[in-house]
Amino acid sequence: MLPEWMKEVDVGPCRFSAVYHGKKGFVGKTIDGIFGFLQEAFVSETYAKRPGFLQGLDPRAKMISILCLVFATSVITNLNLLIFTYALTLMLAYLSKINIAFFIKRVWLFIPIFAGIIAVPAIFNIISPGDLLIQVAYLGKEAHLGPFSLPESIYITKQGLNVAIVFTMRVAACVSAVVLLFITTPQQVLFKSLHSVGVPKIYVLTLEMAYRYVFLLMDLVREMYVAKKARTIKSRSMFEEQKWVGGRMGYTLIRSLDMSEKVHMAMMSRGYNGDVKIMKQFKMHNRDYAAVAAAASLSTLLVLISHNIIQV
């Protein structure tokens, strides 16, 4: 008899982490990065297995629908429509039994890194001239920054703020839709469905194999860094450490090419002759056709409204 607590299924994603004392340094950061990667992959795998709305769709239908939505989002310029699209992805996430807080965090994790760098300077009058909203600094007449002459005062403009918000919302809506696609689809199925949008079989197979071996190589790298950490008493000069990293990269490269030879021989001995065959077990149902039709018409509608062809 199993005790009750052992039968409980943990529905939430579990956390991977490594414990550190003090400053992390490059070894700690690498190990952390690898754990982060494994966690990411593992968590999406657990969501992909849940019985939700998007998980139930045919992967090809899902991929085409999401791609339609992404392309529509990337040409929309109207802020309200972008907010609508983002809300739609949140609703789909809810219907697919994805933890909304996790989903929002997952999407907004990457956005500040690049969208922030691009969007933030754009709100000032230096880049986007326009109506004054909030004054930031008064520099006086003929202010200079090196060889560049600056305007009399720096302020946030209405137009600039609008550009920045539209830009960030567009990135958020696009990333949100794509994240939705891959966390509701198991990776192997996702790659196979790429074949249906025109990717040649040989690349589908290459992608699948690459994904599998990424984990193996990640583990190799993790072991090297953990071994180094375990043997380190005192860190050496920076150049010595850099040389170590360069050497490990070279070693990983040699190992991966060597492994490719062995994998090739193993494939040959099992009858591989360069001709790729992919098993297809997908079946389109009525709901899949309905989903594609709905997504395509919604995307067209969004584009038309955004370009003022249809007045609302």
Binding site: T30, A210, L217, M218, V221, T252, L257, N273
Partner: peptide, 25 residues
């Protein structure tokens, strides 16, 4: 020829993993 898939797959996996290596600067 038939070596294409394994070689490119492993090379792609390596290109992916190389960004994981942190280097002290």
């Amino acid at each position: 020829r038939s070596r294409q898939v394994p070689l490119l797959a492993l090379a792609a996996a390596f290109s992916f993993v190389i960004m994981m290596f942190n280097v002290p600067i």
